[in-house]
Write a protein that binds this DNA or RNA. Sequence first.
RNA 1: UGCGCCGUGGAGCAGCGGUUAGCUCGCCAGGCUCAUAACCUGGAGGUCGUAGGUUCGAUCCCUACCGGCGCAACCA
Length: 529
Amino acid sequence: MARYFITTAIDYPNSRPHIGTAFEKIGADAQARFRRMEGDDVFFLMGNDENTIKVPQRARELGLAPKPYVDEMARQFQDVWRALEISFDEFIQTSEVRHHVACQRFIQAVFDAGDIYKSVYKGHYCNGCETFKTDKEVEEAGGRCPNHPSVPLIWVEEDNYFFRLSAYRDRLLDHYANHPEFIQPESRRNEIVNLVKDELKDVAITRKGFEWGIKTPFDPSQTIYVWFDALLNYITAAGYGSDPERFAVTWPADVHVIGKDITRFHCALWPAMLMSAGLPLPRRVFGHGFVYRKNETTGEIQKLSKSLGNVVEPMELIERFSSEAFRYYFLSQCPFGGDGEFSFERFAEAYNSGLANNLGNLYSRILTMCLKYFNGDLGDARADQARAWTKGADFPALIQDLRARITAFEYGFAFQRIGRDVVDLANLYIQETEPFKLAKTDLPACKAVLINLAEWLRTTAILLKPFLPRTAATFYQAFNFEEFQPWSSVSYQDAATPLLGPGLCVTAPSTGGKPTPLFPKIDLGPSSG
RNA sequence: UGCGCCGUGGAGCAGCGGUUAGCUCGCCAGGCUCAUAACCUGGAGGUCGUAGGUUCGAUCCCUACCGGCGCAACCA
């Protein structure tokens, strides 16, 4: 069984996750679920990035010690991810001992390799932000901090350790050239190649005077700076420095799923760090796009931000609608590699059309007919007669295409194909065969059509499984398909050929003889949202 | 300023050198009644940002311009 190691970026715990953060996790989750269906032994890692300056600060405000604070935040984050049915296998916190130990071992290895040297970090420091400002930022703000114009900037010169990133320029460029798939999507790749070509500088990787964080082993007066530490979560969670055997079979990662803003750290700094430490590089880095908020009244597209007050929290949508609706919207409507936009209006539109009118309605109409005309008992179904609904479409080709789309994180296209070449086909098939008329004139013919539609439910369940796990399971459980093949073992390939058997019958939950509606329509009303 | 992206019927997107420019939503007309006023069929609606250029031929390539946007070292 092939090992498949997939990661998401670790998040800062100082603010609660919003729909943009969730977008990344859902995209990674679909991939993880798909790989499991393909038979891989998947290790899906997520986590929180806790060694930041703001952590002790925020903890103090709440009257907590840093560790209990980050633990509580990690719990809250995981609650959200579980509510979204993100199937992560492990959740690392960078405040964990194993991470600290492994980080120190790693930085020592890089130090021993001669890639770390001491120098002076100079820059404008803002007491308001508690961070350094770049020359450009300061210049544009007229010599002040853009966020705190009234607070004077301080010029700080501090002894820090630097990583010889610039020394890896050629090796990085070689790697990009030899592994075109390393950075995805393509547009991101070009960005990074250009960036590395003309402005790769050494980076400061330690800071002085912080208590919270990981101490630098060769100089305990310094702590390891955020990025160096954060990136290492991918290997420390895989067993680096704590479980060599596990590490050997787990690393390298097959794909790091990250936001487009941090592509450079993952595609330049990170591989250089690994090269220095003599470790293999991840196979792929996928930089997804961002979710923007469309202002319902002005039509403006805005970045999600606390100051604009347009942040939407996943829990709000999950509670108001469902996790499936949430997943459906972001996976089908927002191109994962590019930017997407969110508005309640669009959300409702997509939901009503894709879920209520098509998937949900189809589920209802099929099951209703089965219950109404045959009491849910379709008898002995022959697989070789159950594919008329495809109307001669090339299913193996469709499945090949879907696999390629999913592998490339092109979920929107995958949904389009499923919608057009699978869902629409079933509606059309019903329209053309008119089983509701056959029920009055030719029961065996009617049954044959319904067997086809049952098989459609089975096929669709499989195809939807990576995206909408709950809906897919509901579809599969609408009939006794589990008797022919357990749900946990279905693969995309299984959707290519019908699999039915004797005693086919409806097992779906029903209320008053009618199937329970899956997706009640959303009515936002005249001015809600 | 540097690097990059985008501008296609009312909205959101595909197409990226070659038959009547596709899809989803919305709108209009018809059909069907198994279904969540859903589903099926048909229709209206686009000089593919502007101006040049390359080509037998450009939405797709090149140049300029206009307009919107992203990144520029810790902002998902």
